[in-house]
Simulated scan of single mutants.
Amino acid sequence: MNIAAILPRFLPFGFQPWAARLPEPTTEAAGPVQRTLPRRAVMALENRPLQLRVLRGWIWITRDGCPVDLVLSAGEVFEQRPGARVLVQALEEVEFSIAAAGASAQNA
């Protein structure tokens, strides 16, 4: 599945997605970075092992090459492994944290 091909179907006409890059953690032991995304904002995750924890709201996660998308709510966690492009969209205003994950992290 090509994310770039399906994303326009989910975005309202004229909506320009907001994209953000998270800063690289200085060490593997670096603490989580908290972020807030407004409703309908889209963010690409970096291509490295990460753990995303939803603190408030609902998010939609789609992975390039994966036929199943995920919807997460407060308290749920997504672990990313490198290799596939991952997009996160806020279904409502959402607050989440992202931290470096161990080398064995896998997509949920």
Score class of each variant (00 low, 15 high):
Pro67Cys: 05
Trp58Val: 09
Val86Lys: 02
Arg9Glu: 03
Ala44Pro: 00
Arg48His: 09
Asn107Arg: 13
Ser97Glu: 03
Phe10Ile: 03
Val86Thr: 11
Leu50Ala: 08
Val54Pro: 00
Glu79Thr: 15
Arg85Ile: 04
Asp69Lys: 10
Leu11Lys: 14
Glu92His: 14
Ala99Phe: 00
Thr36Arg: 14
Thr36Trp: 08
Ala41Leu: 05
Gly102Gln: 11
Glu95Lys: 15
Ser104Tyr: 11
Met43Arg: 07
Leu50His: 02
Ser97Thr: 15
Leu37Thr: 05
Leu7Pro: 00
Glu24Tyr: 11
Gln80Val: 03
Thr26Ala: 14
Ile98Leu: 03
Glu46His: 06
Arg63Cys: 09
Ala41Phe: 04
Pro8Phe: 05
Phe78Asn: 01
Phe96Trp: 03
Leu37Pro: 00
Arg9Cys: 05
Leu37Cys: 04
Arg48Lys: 15
Cys66Ile: 09
Ala99Pro: 00
Arg85Glu: 08
Asp69Gly: 04
Met1Val: 12
Ala30Trp: 09
Ala84Tyr: 08
Ala84Phe: 06
Ile98Arg: 00
Ala74Tyr: 02
Arg81Asp: 11
Val33Ala: 13
Gly75Cys: 10
Gln16Pro: 00
Leu37Ser: 05
Gly65Asp: 08
Ile59Met: 01
Ala99Val: 02
Glu46Lys: 11
Phe96Met: 02
Gln16Asp: 07
Pro12Val: 11
Trp60Gly: 02
Ala4Met: 06
Val71Gln: 09
Thr62Ser: 06
Ser97Ile: 03
Val94Thr: 14
Leu45Thr: 11
Ala103Val: 09
Leu91Val: 03
Gly83Cys: 10
Phe15Ser: 14
Thr36Ala: 05
Ala101Lys: 01
Ala108Met: 05
Ile3Gln: 05
Gly65Pro: 00
Arg39Thr: 13
Ala103Trp: 04
Leu50Ser: 02
Thr26Gly: 05
Ala101Val: 10
Val33Gln: 10
Gln51Val: 05
Leu72Lys: 07
Val54Ala: 06
Pro12Tyr: 08
Arg53Glu: 12
Gly14Leu: 02
Val88Pro: 00
Leu45Phe: 11
Ile59Asn: 03
Ser73Asn: 10
Met1Phe: 15
Gln16Lys: 15
Leu7His: 12
Glu95His: 14
Asn2Met: 13
Gly83Phe: 13
Leu91Phe: 01
Ala103Arg: 13
Ser73Ala: 15
Glu28Arg: 15
Val77Lys: 09
Leu45His: 10
Glu79Lys: 14
Glu28Asp: 15
Thr26His: 14
Val68Asp: 10
Arg85Val: 03
Val88Leu: 01
Ile6Tyr: 13
